[in-house]
Amino acid sequence: MDSNLIEVKNLKKYYNSRIGPVKAVDNVNLEIKKGETFGIVGESGCGKTTLMKSILQLIKPTSGEIIFEEIDICQIDKKELRRLRKIMGFVSQDPHASLNPRMTVFDTLSRPLKIHKITRSKEDTIIKIVTLLKEMGLQTEHLIRFPHELSGGQKQRIGIARALAVHPEIIFLDEPTSALDVSVQTKILKLLEKAKKDFDLTYFYISHNINLIKVISDRIGVMYLGKIVEIGRTDIIYNNPKHPYTKGLFKSIPNPDPDKKIEKIYLKGEVPSPVNTPTGCNFRRRCDHASKICEEEEPELKKLDDGREVACHLY
């Protein structure tokens, strides 16, 4: 559990817009350890999807390093990249949009097998795909279906099966259940949990659903406006969040317990646009504890005694 699979160092992704640079991902550092589930939680526009796609090399980062097997994967050539695609799987948010509407389930699942030469013959491919489908709780009859002939949950299973087909080491999951109903979500979560055990996988999971991230992750990072504001072991952060944003965010979660309801609004206002972010601390305008130093100096991630890191001048 301890060796790092991927290390992200000073990763930045800036976009140019008419009113100034958009800092979608701003100086993010993190490690993904082998065998863990690392969760990123944050509200819309915090840069979590951009971060994930940058690590996956689906978006070229502006600067920074992503170290995998001692190599910076931002610098590798096409051939190496293709090898990397076998190791890193990706499941995207919208199960419907992620499947080619003109391909049957069989075609969709046979593509990764062909690209990475996993199976040697047509027979091999068929057997492999049928086995995979059964593991996903689907049947042979689904093979000849097109995406629009499947339900949301079934489509997401196909998405996961596509990622699993080539035996990756790590799968990047971009809110794979946010478009699904809760009862379907349960099934997908169980499926992911089982696949993780069966295939020794590492997960990088992003979501805006805080309870979900809590349930699934070993370690989490909380993102706000392109930056990680708090990172560490899930139980430590949940039991005692330190960063004012994390605190507010956790307290905004609607609670399914009739004895506990949100009594007070902990987060004022809304996430500002990531263009021309304020100097100093990004969060200071929504923060009750903001002082002079927050205006002048950008807080760096600091390690606390319990092992977590927080980017706040209070600590």
Binding site: S151, S183, Q185, T186, K190, K214, V215
Partner: peptide, 21 residues
């Protein structure tokens, strides 16, 4: 349905599936 709702205390093992769709 009530059982499928995630809380901070939920463990995936405890979640109950509704069979079928």
């Amino acid at each position: 349905l009530v059982n499928s709702v995630l809380t901070a205390e939920t463990r995936i093992e405890d979640l109950e599936e509704i069979p079928g769709s």
